[in-house]
C-alpha cells in the first residue's frame, strides 16, 4: 500500500493549465522531496491533493483510501508566508491549533492537548518562546512553530511546503532530525524542496515535477543530471550533480 496515490490529476487557474496528467505513487515510510523550477506547480500539487484547490480532474488516495480531511491522517505545514504573523496569538497557541481537528466542536483544548503542544515545543527547542507573540519570533522559530503544530496533529502522512526556506542552520538541523524521527516511527513525509544540493542527503525518494511528473523514484535513481536537466530546462546553470566537479 502506498502513502499517496495520484491518478489523472489536472489543475487549472483561470482555464490555464498548471498541472497536467499527474500520475504517481509515493511509498509508505519514505522521506520524499518534490523538486522542480519556480512555477512547476509544486505547492499547487500539494494543495490540489489536499483539496485546498479545486481539481479539474483526478483521484487521490492516501494510505489506500480516498482522501478525507475528517480522517485526520494527514499533517500539513504551509508556506511560512501564507499567514499573517501579526495575528494576536502566541507560539503555544498556534501549536494547539494542530489539535483543533481532534478536540471537536465547541470544546476548549484539554490539559492533555496542552501537554502535547508543550512537548512538541520542547522537541523543537522552543520551550522558552511559548508565550511569545508570533511576530516576535525569527523566521526559523516561526517555521519550527509550524512543524510543532503539524507534529501534534498526530498524523500518518505529512505534507510540508518549503519548510527549509529562509531558516537558520540550527532550524535546518532541527527540521531534518524531526523528519528522520518521523520516518523511523513509520510515518511518511512529503516535502516541497528548493535546495537541490541537499536532496540526496535528506531524502530517499524524489519526485521531479514540471507541470507534470518528469521522474519519480528512489533518489539515487532519479536524481541524475539528465533528469534534472529535463526538469529545469535551461535554468539549471549552477548545479553540480553529486560527486562531480563544479566547472565554470
Amino acid at each position: 500500500m502506498d502513502a499517496l496515490e495520484v491518478r489523472n490529476l489536472h489543475v487549472a487557474y483561470d482555464r490555464k493549465a498548471v498541472l497536467e496528467q499527474v500520475d504517481m505513487t509515493i511509498p509508505k515510510e519514505s522521506l520524499t522531496a518534490i523538486v522542480g523550477p519556480n512555477g512547476a506547480g509544486k505547492s499547487t500539487l500539494i494543495k490540489a491533493v489536499l483539496g485546498m484547490l479545486k481539481r479539474s480532474s483526478g483521484e487521490i488516495s492516501i494510505l489506500g483510501k480516498p482522501y478525507n480531511p475528517k480522517n485526520r491522517i494527514v499533517g500539513y505545514v504551509p508556506q511560512r508566508g501564507s499567514v499573517d504573523w501579526d495575528f494576536p496569538t502566541n507560539a503555544l497557541d498556534v501549536i494547539l491549533m494542530g489539535r483543533y481537528g481532534h478536540i471537536g466542536w465547541f470544546k476548549r483544548p484539554s490539559k492533555q492537548d496542552i501537554a502535547m503542544a508543550k512537548e512538541a515545543l520542547q522537541k523543537l527547542g522552543m520551550e522558552e518562546y511559548a508565550d511569545r507573540q508570533i511576530r516576535q519570533l525569527s523566521g526559523g522559530q516561526q517555521q519550527r512553530v509550524f512543524l510543532a503544530r503539524a507534529l501534534v496533529q498526530d498524523a500518518e502522512v505529512y505534507f510540508m511546503d518549503e519548510p527549509f526556506v529562509g531558516v537558520d542552520a540550527k532550524t535546518e538541523k532541527a527540521i531534518i532530525d524531526l523528519l528522520r524521527e518521523l520516518k523511523q516511527k513509520g510515518k511518511t513525509v512529503i516535502v516541497v524542496h528548493h535546495d537541490l544540493q541537499t536532496v540526496p542527503e535528506y531524502f530517499d525518494h524524489t519526485l521531479l515535477l514540471n507541470r507534470t511528473v518528469i521522474a519519480n523514484g528512489p533518489t539515487e535513481e532519479v536524481f541524475t543530471k539528465e533528469l534534472l536537466q529535463k526538469t529545469y530546462g535551461g535554468t539549471l546553470a549552477f548545479f553540480t550533480a553529486p560527486g562531480e566537479q563544479r566547472s565554470g
Binding site: 485546498m52 494527514v74 499533517g75 504551509p78 495575528f87
Partner: peptide, 16 residues
Amino acid sequence: EWKLLIFDPDFAKNSG
C-alpha cells in the same frame, strides 16, 4: 474554529 479559519484557512481545511 473562527480563530483557526481566520489565521490559516488551509490548515483549517486540513484539520477537517
